[in-house]
Design a protein around this nucleic acid. Structure first.
Length: 435
RNA sequence: GCCCUGGUAGUAUAGUCCGGUCUAGUAUGCGGGCCUGUCACGCCUGUGACCCGGGUUCAAAUCCCGGCCAGGGCGCCA
C-alpha cells in the first residue's frame, strides 16, 4: 500500500498524553516499540521524541480498515495514528489511544540484530554499525538526552560567569603542543593538520575578551586502544585572564557541580531508566603529584618521579581516592611548553580525575614571550613555527589560566558508562571511520 | 604498536580442557496456530548456527598452523 503524503497533522507528542485529554481526538506519530497481540485485542506501543504511548486496538471497537492495518504492524514500523484518548490506569501515562485512523509509513524490511528492551545486547561494535537504529533503544536515548542537558548546563554556567563562547579554527598549520600525533591533511597545495586543542587560540583570545570558552571537537591520531580514548572527541575549553591555577580549578569545580545538579534535576526519568545516579561532588580533594607518587608506591607500584602516572599507578591512587579529585603540581618536563613552571621542576598545573579516569587538565600559562620562547626551545620545538602565536605576546598579554575538559569522558562519569563509545553518537577510533 | 583471550542459529550463550554419545543444548527472536487488558503478556508448534583456509586423525565445533574479525590489558595519549 502506498501512502501519498503524510495525511495527518500531529496534535500532541507522547509526553502530552494523559488522562486529562480523555475523550479528545489527537494525532500522534512514532515508531513501534512492541506489539502485544492478544487475539481480539492488540497493544501497540509507539515511541516518539518524548517517550512511549499505547495504542489499543480492540476488535469490534475499531473499524475494519484499522483492524486489518494493525495486523501488518510490527516492531520498528513507522506509523501515524488519529484516535480518541481514553483514560485508563492500565496504560502507561494513564491514557491510551483508540485509533480511528492508522497510517503505516514504513514497515522494516529486516529487524535489527538487537532487542529494543531486554538485557542481552549484542556487542557494541555490531550496534555501532547501524547506530541510528541502536539509538532508538530507550537506554541509548537516555544517554543522549543527558548529554544534551549537560551541554546546555555548561553553556548556561559559563555564560553566567561572564565567559564568551568562541569558535577557533580546526584546520591548523602546525602542531600546538608537540606530543600527541596529528592528522595531516592536504590544504590546497599545503600540508595542514586537524587541531588537537584550541589552546593557543584561546590564549590569544583572552587578550581581547578576557574570559572565553569553546565547545568543539579535537583530534588525536594516537593509536590508543582503550575504553576512554577516541580519535575525535568533544573538548570543553576555558581560558581566563587575571586568574591563577587555583582560580581555574575553582571555575572547573563550580562547573562540574552545577552540571551534575542540573542533569540530576532535568533527567530524572533518564537516570531511572539507566539505573544510575551521578555522584554529587562535594569539596573536591586536591593532592599533589608528589603525594600521588607516594600513594602509588605505598600500593607497591613502581613510579619514577617525573614520569607520567601509568594506569597501574592511577588504579592504586583511585583505590583510595573515590570520586572527583585534583592532582596538582605536575613535573614541568611532562607538561606542554605553555604551562608555567615553578622553580623546583614542578609546574602550575592540575588534572581533574574521577577515580582512575582523567577528565580535565589545565593550569596557569606562561604570559611572558621570552619565557615562552625559551620553553619552546627547551622542548625541542622550533619557535619559528609558533611565530604567528608569539608575536601577539608583545602587546600586553595578561596573566591567565585555563583548562580543557574531555566532555565525552565527563559523560562517562555522568551516565555510569564504561566505554566512551556509548556516550558518543558516531565514535571515531583507530579502527572505526564509519558510520 | 606489543601481549592475552575469544569467534557456535537474527541475538545472547552451553558444549571445546580430556576428539566419537552433538542428529550441537538453552533463552530470546523469527514463521504458523490459539488467546478481548497486555505492559519482557501467555500457551502450542515450526525454523535456524560450529568465522575462513590449510594440517593431524579412522573420526575435528573440539587438537595444530595461517588469515580475518572482535573483546580486554599494556604502551602512546587526554
Amino acid at each position: 500500500m502506498r501512502v501519498k503524503g503524510i495525511g495527518l497533522k500531529r496534535s500532541i507528542f507522547s509526553g502530552q498524553l494523559g488522562p486529562e485529554l480523555d475523550g479528545r481526538e489527537e494525532v500522534l506519530f512514532g515508531w513501534v516499540m512492541s506489539v502485544r497481540d492478544q487475539g481480539g485485542i492488540k497493544f501497540i506501543i509507539i515511541s516518539d521524541k518524548d517517550g512511549i504511548a499505547q495504542i489499543t486496538v480492540k476488535k469490534g471497537e475499531v473499524g475494519k480498515r484499522v483492524w486489518e492495518r494493525a495486523k501488518r504492524i510490527r516492531e520498528h514500523s513507522c506509523i501515524g495514528v488519529r484516535g480518541i484518548v481514553r483514560k485508563t490506569e492500565k496504560a502507561p501515562r494513564g491514557a491510551e489511544i483508540v485509533p480511528k485512523e492508522l497510517r503505516v509509513y514504513s514497515v522494516p524490511k529486516k529487524l535489527p540484530p538487537f532487542p529494543l528492551f531486554g538485557s542481552s545486547l549484542p556487542k557494541l561494535d555490531k550496534r555501532l554499525d547501524i547506530r541510528a537504529v541502536d539509538l532508538r533503544r530507550p537506554k541509548a536515548q537516555a544517554i543522549f538526552k543527558i548529554r544534551g542537558s549537560a551541554l546546555r548546563a555548561i553553556r548556561d554556567y559559563l555564560n553566567e560567569e561572564g565567559f564568551l563562547e568562541v569558535n577557533t579554527p580546526k584546520i591548523i598549520a602546525s602542531a600546538t603542543e608537540g606530543g600527541a600525533a596529528l592528522f595531516p591533511l592536504l590544504y590546497y597545495d599545503k600540508e595542514a593538520f586537524l587541531t588537537q586543542s584550541p589552546q593557543l587560540y584561546k590564549e590569544q583570545l583572552v587578550m581581547a575578551f578576557e574570559r572565553v570558552f569553546e565547545i568543539a571537537p579535537a583530534f588525536r591520531a594516537e593509536p590508543s586502544k582503550t575504553l576512554s580514548h577516541l580519535s575525535e572527541f568533544l573538548s570543553v575549553d576555558v581560558e581566563c585572564a587575571f586568574v591563577d591555577m587555583n582560580g581555574a580549578m575553582e571555575i572547573l569545580e563550580g562547573l562540574i557541580g552545577y552540571v551534575v545538579h542540573r542533569v540530576r534535576e532535568e533527567c530524572k526519568e533518564q537516570f531511572k531508566l539507566l539505573g544510575f545516579e551521578p555522584e554529587v561532588p562535594s569539596g573536591m580533594k586536591r593532592i599533589t603529584y608528589d603525594e600521588a607518587v607516594e600513594l602509588a608506591r605505598r600500593h607497591g607500584v613502581d613510579v619514577d618521579w617525573g614520569e607520567d602516572l601509568s594506569s597501574m599507578a592511577l588504579d592504586a591512587i583511585a583505590s583510595e581516592l573515590k570520586g572527583y579529585y585534583f592532582i596538582t603540581g605536575w613535573p614541568e618536563a611532562i607538561k606542554p611548553f605553555y604551562i608555567k613552571p615553578r622553580k623546583d621542576g614542578r609546574s602550575e598545573s592540575f588534572d581533574l580525575m574521577y577515580g582512575d579516569l582523567e577528565i580535565a587538565s589545565g593550569g596557569e600559562r606562561i604570559a611572558s614571550k621570552r619565557e615562552l620562547m625559551r620553553r619552546i626551545r627547551d622542548k625541542g620545538l622550533n619557535p619559528k613555527s609558533f611565530e604567528y602565536h608569539l608575536k601577539v605576546f608583545d602587546y600586553g598579554m595578561p596573566p591567565h589560566s585555563g583548562w580543557g575538559l574531555g566532555f565525552d569522558r565527563f559523560m562517562m562519569v555522568l551516565t555510569g558508562q564504561k566505554n566512551v563509545r556509548e556516550v558518543t553518537l558516531f565514535p571515531r577510533d583507530q579502527f572505526r571511520l564509519t558510520p
